[in-house]
Design a protein around this nucleic acid. Sequence first.
DNA 1: GAACTATACTGAGGGAGTCTCAGTTTGGAT
DNA 2: ATCCAAACTGAGACTCCCTCAGTATAGTTC
Lengths: 198, 198
Amino acid sequence: MTTGTPHIAQRPKRADGRRNYDAILAAARTAFEADGSEASLENIAARAGVAIGTLYRHFPTRASLVEAATRDGLADLVARAERLAASPDPLEALSEWMEQAVRHFSTFRGLVGILAQSMYDEGTPSHAMCNAMHRSGADLLRAAQAAGRVRPDLTPGELFDLLSGAAWVREQSLPDRDGSPRFLRLVLEGITTRNPEP
Amino acid sequence: MTTGTPHIAQRPKRADGRRNYDAILAAARTAFEADGSEASLENIAARAGVAIGTLYRHFPTRASLVEAATRDGLADLVARAERLAASPDPLEALSEWMEQAVRHFSTFRGLVGILAQSMYDEGTPSHAMCNAMHRSGADLLRAAQAAGRVRPDLTPGELFDLLSGAAWVREQSLPDRDGSPRFLRLVLEGITTRNPEP
DNA sequence: GAACTATACTGAGGGAGTCTCAGTTTGGAT
DNA sequence: ATCCAAACTGAGACTCCCTCAGTATAGTTC
C-alpha cells in the first residue's frame, strides 16, 4: 500500500552516468540470478566498479533495480501476447503465452513475489508493466473463452494467481528438479472446458 | 542441500530453561504472525524477556525456531488425515484435508517457502514433519484415485506442488483480499476425473 | 580553451540485524 | 553445604542498508 508515484529508473544523460547505470544493471542481473532478489546491493555496486552511493543514485530502491533488470523481459511478454492474439487456436495461444510467462516470472528467486505485489500495489515500480501484462493476458483468456475452450467463469485475476503459483513452484525447485512444466500442464488441463463441442 | 542431522529443538530439563523456552516460543509465534518468518530474533528475545544468547541456546537457527513454532499444527494435520482416511467419500476427504493444509501452510508469511524447502531437503528441521504429512496426504490421494474421483496420473509430489502453490497465493494476498479459496477450488475441480461413472 | 554548472561520484558513518563466546549465575542433585 | 552441568548474559565482530556532505567532471557556453 505504498503511496505516491513510484520511481522508474531512467538511463542518465551524461556518458559516465550511462556507463555506470549499465554496469550496475549487468552486475545486478548476474547477482539476482545467483542469489535471488535479496542479493547484496553493496556487492552489486562493487562488482560494477562503483561506490554504493552511485548505485543508490540510479536506483533509489531495490524494487527500482529489479524493475529495470526485468523491464525488457516483461515488455517481450506483452509483445508476444499481441502476436499470439491473432492465432487461429486461442487455447494453444494462451498455453504458449502462459508457459512463457511462467518462465519469465521465475528468472530468479524472489521475482514472482515482487511481481505479484506489483500487480495490486500502485506504488511499485513494476506496477505499470504488470498492468500491461495483465491486460494482454486477459485478452488471450477472453479469446479462449469465446472459443469455448476455457471455462467461462475464470477471471483474469484468477488466471494470474494460477500463473504466479506455477512460477513460484518452479522458482522453489530451481535449479535442480524442474517441477513446473507439469504443474502448468495440470493447471491448463484443469481450466479447459469439460465438455468440448462434439 | 544442507547436510548432517538437523537440530530439532527440545524442551529443556531445568525449570528456568523450560520457562524461557516457552516464553521464546510464544514471542516467536506472535512475531511471525505479525512480521513473517523473517521477524527480528533480537526482538523476539527481548519480548520474551531473555538475552539474545539464550534464544540461540534453545534455537540455534531460525529454521529450528520456525519448526518448533509450527510443529503442533503440522502434527494436527497428520492426525486429521488419519481420521479422514476412514471417510466414505474420499474426494470430499481429500478436499477438506487440502483446505486445512493450505490454511496451515499460510499461518504466516514465509512459512510455505520454508516447508516447501523442507519437503526435499533432509538437512532441515521441519523435514521429518513434512515427510509425515506427505505420507498421510498421499494416502488420501490414493484413496480418491482408487474410487475413480481423481485423475489417476497425479502423483503425491504434484499434489504438494499444487497445495504449496495455493498456500503461497493465499499468503501473498494476506491479510486483505483472500484469493485462496477460489484458487484451491479451481485446482480441485481441475484434478477431479473428467468422466465420472454414470 | 577557460569558465561554469548541473550532473554524477565517493565513501565514511549511523542504524539494524545476525551470530558467537568468554565469563557469570543457578537449579537441583548429592 | 557443596558442587557442577545446565543455563544465562551482553559486548563485540560482522554484514548489510541507506544517507549525505564533500569532491570530481562531462558537456555547454562564450
